[in-house]
Amino acid sequence: MNPKQFRLEYLARLVQGEHVGQSDLILEGLASLDAAQAKHIAFVNADKYLDQARASKAGALIVTPTLKNQLDTHNNFIVVDNPYLAFAILTHVFEKKNQHQGIESTAQIHPSAMIADSAYIGHYVVIGEHCVVGDHTIIQSHVKIDHDIEIGQHCFIDSHVTLTGDTKIGDRVRIHANTVIGGEGFGFAPYQGKWHRIAQLGSVKIGNDVRIGSNCSIDRGALDDTILEDGVIIDNLVQIAHNVKIGANTALAAKCGIAGSTTIGKNCVLAGAVGVVGHINIADNVTITGMSMVTKSISEAGSYSSGTPMLESLHWKRAAVRFKQLADVPLTQLLKRLDHIQAQIESLESTFKRK
């Protein structure tokens, strides 16, 4: 199959940039600076990549005006303010897209379901009663869609995804393989030494332009809905418990776990393996660094961390012993010692001043 081919001038126009050099240069794909060849375009995002850019065999480079002036080894450029954003836009131009429409013969669809003519339903998909699948949505093989599920337009549902619990999904949502949305939340009432299951009666509401990675679980609400607002992006292996609300354009990296009934604000970033306890609120514009444990509400924007940073093993063992010793000393004793040391310092300072 012939690769996609585009003129440099056309690509520059797509990213609202200025083309410099051979306007009719034909480019066939994107590549890293190290791997690029004459038919590739690569991007340079900072001064630290200039040496790689000078050595690169790329046919054209995406650069800022300042970076272009430092690259006399190349002749063909797309000049923009933000090369990384331009690169992100062009990935969609060269992406191989599924252009199929229609319903495969092995799919099982309830007669009451409403499937858009422009949608694609893959092999062995099962769609239940009263479901809705919007225009140009792609549902890959072996997806299970339970009763009363609504999926918007231009969505992508990867293989082996399960949608249940009356889930409602907006437009341009991507859900990757083996993810379960709308499953039963972890709700049990303890009584006389036993756990009594609480039936989950809420749903999941997912806004527009949401991306959910592979092997994630997003539980339906117990009573109120679990909500992901527009633009939320979620990495692989993320657990979101019942009644959680995540604000617009918030990002969760891999292995995050969010306990039930927690509200996370807009434009937040939770790095890898962050854990969040239940029934707390996190404000807008909060960043939480990797492997932190959030145990109480955060009311102000900013960056927050917890946990122990990596040390050389021997240093870590010494620090752990000291930390344990510190924990064994009552806080009142520490405060008294600090007060005593402060008094001694002040006494010495007074003596030196008199001399």
Rank of each mutant, 00 (worst) to 15 (best):
D171W: 01
I246A: 02
Q153K: 15
D81Y: 09
I227R: 04
L338T: 10
E95G: 09
G265V: 08
Q239D: 06
T226S: 00
S203C: 11
I218Q: 13
G59Y: 02
T308G: 10
L326A: 12
M1F: 11
T262K: 03
D148W: 00
D224R: 12
V133Y: 04
C268V: 11
Q22W: 03
T250H: 07
N243I: 02
A271Q: 06
V93T: 15
S105F: 03
Q37R: 14
G170V: 00
G128D: 01
V79K: 08
P190W: 13
S32K: 03
S214P: 04
P65N: 05
I234M: 06
P330K: 12
I206Q: 02
D81Q: 14
F6W: 13
M293F: 07
H154S: 10
S214D: 05
Q333F: 12
L67G: 05
K57E: 13
V63A: 01
S118K: 04
G202C: 00
H196T: 07
I227H: 08
Q5N: 14
K144I: 12
S56M: 04
I246R: 01
T308C: 03
Q52P: 08
T351C: 04
V20C: 12
V274A: 12
F43E: 11
G257I: 09
G152H: 12
G122V: 00
A119N: 06
G202L: 08
I181A: 10
K205F: 11
G17E: 01
K245H: 15
D339Q: 15
G260H: 10
E349C: 11
S297I: 08
S105Y: 08
D81W: 06
G221P: 03
G165V: 06
M114C: 14
K266P: 03
N2D: 09
S112Q: 09
A113C: 08
V294G: 02
Y191K: 13
Q5P: 08
H315A: 15
L11T: 07
D235Y: 08
N236V: 04
H92V: 11
K266W: 08
Q5G: 08
K336W: 02
H315P: 01
M291Q: 14
K168H: 12
S217I: 05
V269M: 15
D72C: 02
I233S: 15
C131P: 00
Q99C: 07
E150L: 02
G221C: 10
S56N: 05
R174H: 14
L237Y: 13
I62L: 03
L311G: 05
T137G: 04
A60C: 10
I218M: 04
G265M: 05
T262A: 08
V15C: 03
V244R: 09
S297F: 03
A222G: 10
G193E: 01
T179H: 05
G221Q: 09
Y124V: 06
R7D: 06
T66I: 12
Y124N: 15
V161E: 05
N285L: 02
A12V: 05
V173P: 03
A113T: 05
N208I: 03
I345D: 13
K296I: 02
Q192K: 14
G193R: 02
L33V: 07
D51I: 13
